[in-house]
C-alpha cells in the first residue's frame, strides 16, 4: 500500500484528509449515531470549531440556505469561549486517537495571542512540558523550539488562526483581509505557541498573496485556504435578505475553481505547507487541490452529507495514486511543474 502520510510542522498525519473547522463535530455525531466515530475518527487530524476568547451565542436564525452547487452559512462563531473550551472540550479532544488542530478566532489582532497562550498553558498542564502557569516562552525559546527543540505535546496539537470568518461584524475576516493586521495577529500567536501554527486565509480579498506572505514571515508554519466567500441570498417571497445575519459565507462545489486558484497562487508565492479546501466532494477534487500545491486537504460542507467522507476520500486517494503509479510527492505541486 502506498504511503499517504504527511507532516505539517511537528504534526504527522497518516494521510492528507482532514475536516474543515466548523463542519464536523465528532462528539455530536457520536451522541446521535454511536461512539464508533470517536474510536476511529474519519480524519487524519481533527479540527474543532473556532473558539474565541469570550463566549458567543452566534447569529440569529435562519443560519443556512442551500444554493446552486453549495450553501451559504451565517453561523457567527457560536462557542462557549476559551475558558469553557479548556475545561469541557479539551480533555475529550485529547482522548481522541488523532492529532488535533485547534482553531481560534479573534476580534482584534491581539486576541489570537491571548487565546493561544491560554491553550498552551492548558496543554502543558495536560500533556507536560513546562509549568502550566509559567511565563510565556521568550522569542528565543520559540525560535529554538520551532527550529526542532519542541515540547512533546506539539506533536499532538497544532493551532489554526481563523482570520477569515465573514459572519462576524468586526475583526476576524477584516484582520485576514489586511496584511499588516494579519502580521500582528500571527506574530502575537507565534510568541505564545511553539507548535504547528496554521493561518486560515479569506478569499474575500483582491490579492491573497501579500496576506499569505505576511502570515509566513510572521511565523506561520502552514497556511490553510480558503474560508467561505461572502455572499447574499434573498427570501424568494419577500425579496429581503434570507439569512438572520443578512450576508453569509458561500461554500461547496460552487467555490472549488475559485479555491483552486487561491491555492495555486499561494503555493507559488510562499514556502510553507498548504491545507487546501473549498468545495471538496470527491477524490478528483483532492487530487486537484494537491496538484495545486496543497499538502493536506480539508473536507467542509460535503461532510454534512456523510461525516465519514474524509476517510473514504483518503482510501480513494491511495487507490488513485496506485493507479497512476505515483507517490504523494509526484502529486503535490504537479500543476506548477512542466
Amino acid at each position: 500500500m502506498i504511503d499517504l502520510s504527511v507532516s505539517l510542522g511537528p504534526l504527522r498525519l497518516s494521510h492528507p484528509l482532514i475536516n474543515a473547522s466548523g463542519t464536523l463535530d465528532l462528539f455530536e455525531v457520536a451522541a446521535g449515531l454511536g461512539d464508533a466515530i470517536l474510536a476511529d475518527p474519519p480524519v487524519a487530524a481533527y479540527v474543532p470549531k473556532t473558539v474565541t476568547l469570550k463566549p458567543r451565542p452566534g447569529n440569529d436564525p435562519p443560519r443556512i440556505v442551500e444554493v446552486e452547487a453549495g450553501m451559504l452559512n451565517s453561523i457567527g462563531l457560536p462557542n462557549a469561549g476559551v475558558e469553557a473550551f479548556v475545561a469541557d472540550e479539551l480533555p475529550r479532544l485529547l482522548a481522541l486517537p488523532r492529532p488535533l488542530i485547534l482553531n481560534v478566532g479573534g476580534f482584534a489582532p491581539g486576541e489570537y495571542a491571548l487565546v493561544a497562550a491560554r491553550l498552551r498553558r492548558a496543554l502543558q498542564l495536560h500533556l507536560g512540558g513546562g509549568p502550566p502557569d509559567g511565563p510565556s516562552p521568550s522569542s528565543d525559546e520559540i525560535r529554538a523550539a520551532v527550529g526542532g527543540d519542541l515540547p512533546a505535546w506539539t506533536a499532538r496539537v497544532g493551532l489554526e488562526l481563523n482570520v477569515s470568518c465573514p459572519n462576524v461584524h468586526s475583526g476576524c475576516m477584516s484582520i485576514g483581509a489586511d496584511p499588516g493586521e494579519t502580521r500582528v495577529a500571527v506574530e502575537g500567536a507565534r510568541a505564545e505557541w511553539p507548535g504547528l501554527l496554521v493561518v486560515k486565509l479569506t478569499p474575500n480579498v483582491t490579492n491573497v498573496v501579500p496576506v499569505a506572505q505576511a502570515a509566513a514571515e510572521a511565523g506561520a508554519s502552514a497556511i490553510s485556504l480558503v474560508n467561505t466567500f461572502k455572499g447574499l441570498v434573498l427570501d424568494r417571497v419577500t425579496l429581503r435578505p434570507y439569512l438572520g445575519g443578512v450576508t453569509g459565507g458561500l461554500s461547496g462545489p460552487a467555490i472549488k475553481p475559485l479555491a483552486l486558484r487561491f491555492v495555486y497562487e499561494v503555493a507559488a508565492a510562499v514556502d510553507v505547507p498548504l491545507i487546501g479546501m473549498g468545495g471538496v466532494t470527491s477524490v478528483q477534487d483532492v487530487l486537484e487541490f494537491m496538484a495545486c500545491g496543497a499538502s493536506a486537504v480539508a473536507v467542509g460542507a460535503a461532510g454534512f452529507r456523510d461525516p465519514w467522507l474524509p476517510a473514504r476520500l483518503a482510501a480513494e486517494l491511495g487507490l488513485a495514486l496506485e493507479g497512476r503509479g505515483w507517490s504523494l510527492s509526484d502529486l503535490v505541486g504537479r500543476a506548477h511543474r512542466r
Binding site: L4, S5, S7, P273, R305, D306, A314, L317, G333
Partner: peptide, 25 residues
Amino acid sequence: LAARAHVNPAPELQPSPRTPPNSGC
C-alpha cells in the same frame, strides 16, 4: 513546491485509511 510535499519517509503507526465499517450513512 517539491520541498513542500513534506512526505514522510516512513509509514506512521496510525490507522491506515479505509472505508469506515461503522459509517452511519
